[in-house]
């Protein structure tokens, strides 16, 4: 189980980032650490699906499709940051609201569709007659 290690590294880096930010307030260091996170995540993304059987390509695509629904957080934060009630703010609020709806649809639709695909993959409890015993 290697999976938690990069997560831990990420945590460490975030802790370091925070402390550096306060002591150095050095943008270059923060950028460097972000690049760290970026590279690790890229590497991890490749590594995680390296040996996937073709059978699982579609569910995997659908699963990652659901995960990028994380962008809904961005929509929530944006909508949460608009205060005013001027015309511009109202228009932006509407756009951000649409973004929340679409992002939420991405998340829910993605996970539900993936689950329905994978539901089919459970082994049937009763192997109908004895498959493969045809032949002779």
């Amino acid at each position: 189980m290697l999976a938690p290690i990069p997560g831990f590294l990420f945590f460490l880096m975030q802790v370091t980032t925070d402390s550096l930010q306060t002591t150095l307030s050095d943008n270059a260091t923060v950028l460097l650490l972000t690049v760290y996170v970026l590279l690790l995540a890229i590497f991890l993304g490749f590594e995680l699906i390296g040996r996937v059987p073709a059978t699982l390509h579609t569910p995997l695509m659908s699963g990652t499709n659901a995960i990028h629904g994380i962008v809904v957080l961005g929509a929530m934060i944006i909508l949460g940051s608009i205060e005013g009630s001027s015309l511009t703010d109202t228009v932006l609020k509407i756009l951000a609201f649409i973004a929340v709806v679409l992002g939420s649809a991405n998340v829910f639709g993605g996970f539900v569709v993936t689950d329905r695909m994978l539901e089919m993959f459970k082994r049937k409890p009763v192997a109908r007659k004895s498959p493969g015993a045809g032949g002779q």
């Binding site: 890229i42 991890l44 993304g45 490749f46 699906i49 996937v52 390509h57 995997l60």
Partner: peptide, 10 residues
Amino acid sequence: ILVGASGAFL
């Protein structure tokens, strides 16, 4: 990024 990378590989 995780999705971006795994998606590219896929």
